[in-house]
Design a protein around this nucleic acid. Structure first.
Lengths: 193, 193
DNA sequence: AATGTTCATGAACACAGTGTTCAATAATCA
DNA sequence: TGATTATTGAACACTGTGTTCATGAACATT
């Protein structure tokens, strides 16, 4: 299968678009392969020619997003200011993207979501944050008390918490403010500083 | 349907036990109703006489757990020490329970889990923590910068992070130490204090 | 111990969704 | 243009769901 064939690009594009729209409409878990091919107007056998199943299509779609975020993220170098404040590219890039695709992110962070989609999404976040933290953490603080793996999990889950909260409540809160809240929680918790 | 009928208690008990064992064996999502009734050795129609579906049985089971934890938790009053340290009953009670049912908690926190089970589990955590925090937060700090709903989410997710990390890595770390780590992250983040 | 009530059983059923196969057709590439 | 490669749709076997119903078993009560 030649991925540069115009037909292939077209088919995969339509399937991905159908998936994303359906996630917004009914949540990932309730989607059936039938729904996807109906919406994309693609033959059943065609779907299985490209992807093993629904999950395979999701994984591919998430990887497309990952590539995009990685591109955006490279613009912002992770920084540790003198004041102790941290700045990360990943969180800003993700929040920006979330702002531009609010419906999708509301669906992914909301109750309608699914275990699988969460798994892949958080997996992506983990990779992205771990990259940056490798740089920041060693530079910023040899005095970190908790294990590295727990630190990464903590950052990922705190980001997820803020993202979910930001998406759920229609709060007139800018990307910068959301990012600041995230960094504050990670850095100093609810009371520290 | 009389819930005190010995037959009812027996049937529901067998179904719950089957569910929990199957969660450990293959993860919630992969379980079918067929699996449950096979393992419980209960008729198909009997299952549907008691529960609407797999999810209904799960919800009932989680509520059983909630009742148990609430009982345990009441032993420990939430405290704010002079040093600023916090002490919560919920986290200790949960960690204790997790220690005694490690296989189950590993299955629930692990990759094999499911969206539905996470939803109910975190819902339970949210209720329990919110109760305690209503007391602690108002008493401890009028200077909390983030909204209350975000604070509760943050506590729940941070607890989930620590619990998951504790279950995943077979670290020889006591309940008290895990609880301390959790409280530190919530209170002061990774760097604060 | 007998009785009326309630629960448990298992087989049968219609239904929805999955993933595969195959021969025919249409679009693409070079 | 001709060879290649993707797409199509219908048919198929399969797995699991949730319901129904007549029969049998366990229960509480007197």
């Amino acid at each position: 299968m030649n991925k540069n064939d115009r037909r292939v690009r077209r088919t995969r594009g339509m399937l991905q678009e159908a998936l994303l729209h359906l996630i917004v409409e009914k949540g990932y878990d309730d989607i059936t392969v039938q729904d996807i091919i109906d919406r994309a107007d693609v033959g059943r056998s065609t779907f299985y020619f490209h992807f093993m199943d629904k999950e395979d299509l999701l994984e591919w779609s998430i990887n497309q997003l990952r590539a995009y975020i990685e591109m955006q993220q490279k613009g912002v170098q992770p920084v540790v200011k003198n004041s102790g404040e941290i700045q990360l590219g990943t969180s800003m890039a993700m929040l920006d993207h979330a702002k531009d695709h609010k419906e999708l992110y509301q669906a992914v962070t909301g109750r309608q979501s699914g275990a699988v989609i969460l798994h892949y999404f958080k997996g992506m976040l983990r990779d992205l944050f771990e990259d940056e933290m490798g740089t920041v953490l060693t530079r910023a603080t040899p005095s970190l008390k908790i294990p590295h793996s727990l630190a990464v999990d903590f950052v990922v889950n705190t980001f997820w918490t803020v993202l979910t909260w930001w998406m759920d409540n229609d709060i007139p809160c800018s990307v910068a403010e959301a990012d600041k809240t995230f960094l504050q929680l990670v850095h100093s918790g609810m009371y520290g500083d």
